[in-house]
């Protein structure tokens, strides 16, 4: 580090990187956590839907010639796949206990892995960022890729939208009531099973959205689902299963630990997240922001 200005811009850069990773984690974990809060269901295959989103996005972009169509349609296709999963598997596993849920969705990871290999092959596929976002932006003395800023903006928009829906709308009130106490919500006349389905589909769509959004940065590989699954689960558990605020907090914590850990102490960064997860599970087993009283 030669001078102070260089130093500051370096840290701004890292902060943006951390924020961008956190937003990706948020898009994935928010669906997972709300699904858990509502359905008591842990879907390990959530990250497979993220991978599917990326691959479908790449094909759609090639087909339509536009990144934006891909960003719009791929999440809807993933949502359709999610709906299919809901009716075939998820609905009947709701009361089957965590072990069976983990096992079946672990099986789904394997199935999706090979389906993607059959459909798209084993080679990593790239997706070009749209022309409007392919450059870099100059501000605060740094040059930053505008596509990464777009991801931060996208995450922030979804975050604000989720908050608005949950805090300000009637459907949000229903969701919160059902997370708090499903039986009570059902007794109050909320159609709980329809709500479950709706939330599950939205969660899947968000996973698909995260996949398309990540493709220009990370490129699509068959292992991308497995790779992101663990950090996503960590976010959800640290934040508190079922809690929106927890997903936000958890994403930021893991995003920053991961990026800054890699800069400050490269050999311990991965260890740090696991140690944090272990500490939270031991001291606050229900997460930093518990969803239920």
């Amino acid at each position: 580090m030669q001078n102070v200005a260089m130093d500051v811009s370096f840290w701004i850069l890292q902060c943006l990187n951390a924020l961008q990773y956190a937003m990706l984690l948020f898009l994935l974990s928010v669906g997972l956590t709300v699904i858990f809060g509502l359905l008591n269901f842990v879907n390990l295959a959530h990250a497979s839907l993220y991978m599917l989103g990326a691959y479908l996005g790449i094909s759609l972009a090639a087909l339509t010639g536009s990144f934006w169509w891909a960003l719009l349609i791929a999440p809807l296709l993933v949502m359709g796949i999610g709906a299919g999963l809901y009716f075939t598997l998820i609905a009947r596993l709701r009361t089957a206990g965590p072990m069976n849920q983990v096992l079946v969705t672990f099986g789904l990871i394997f199935v999706f892995l090979d389906l993607v290999r059959i459909g798209w092959g084993d080679i990593a596929l790239g997706l070009a960022a749209p022309p409007a976002l392919s450059g870099t932006l100059h501000f605060l003395g740094i040059n930053y890729p505008s596509y990464r800023l777009f991801i931060i903006g996208l995450g922030g928009t979804v975050m604000a939208g989720m908050w608005f829906i949950l805090a300000r709308t009637q459907i949000g009130a229903m969701i919160r009531a059902s997370v708090e106490n499903t039986d009570m919500a059902a007794a109050l006349g909320i159609d709980v099973s329809r709500l479950f389905f709706l939330v599950f589909c939205c969660g899947c769509a968000l996973a698909g959205l995260a996949g398309v959004a990540a493709a220009p940065i990370l490129s699509a590989t068959t292992t991308m689902g497995i790779t992101i699954l663990i950090p996503t689960m960590i976010v959800v558990v640290i934040g508190g299963l079922g809690s929106l605020e927890g997903a936000i907090l958890g994403s930021l914590i893991i995003g920053f630990i991961d990026v800054f850990g890699a800069v400050l102490m490269p050999s311990f960064s991965a260890l740090l997240t696991y140690a944090l997860l272990a500490a939270v599970l031991v001291w606050r087993p229900h997460g930093l922001i518990a969803a239920r009283g």
């Binding site: 858990f36 842990v42 206990g97 965590p98 072990m99 849920q101 983990v102 663990i230 689960m233 960590i234 558990v237 299963l241 050999s267 991965a270 260890l271 696991y274 140690a275 997860l277 272990a278 599970l281 031991v282 087993p285 229900h286």
Partner: peptide, 28 residues
């Protein structure tokens, strides 16, 4: 010992975390 008071999905996640911790150590 550390997980003796937790169960269900939290136990599964905790063991996952400790296992991955060991994996990371040897990986590095």
């Amino acid at each position: 010992w550390v997980t003796a008071r937790i169960s269900g999905i939290f136990f599964i996640m905790a063991t996952l975390a400790f296992g991955q911790m060991a994996y990371t150590i040897f990986f590095r």
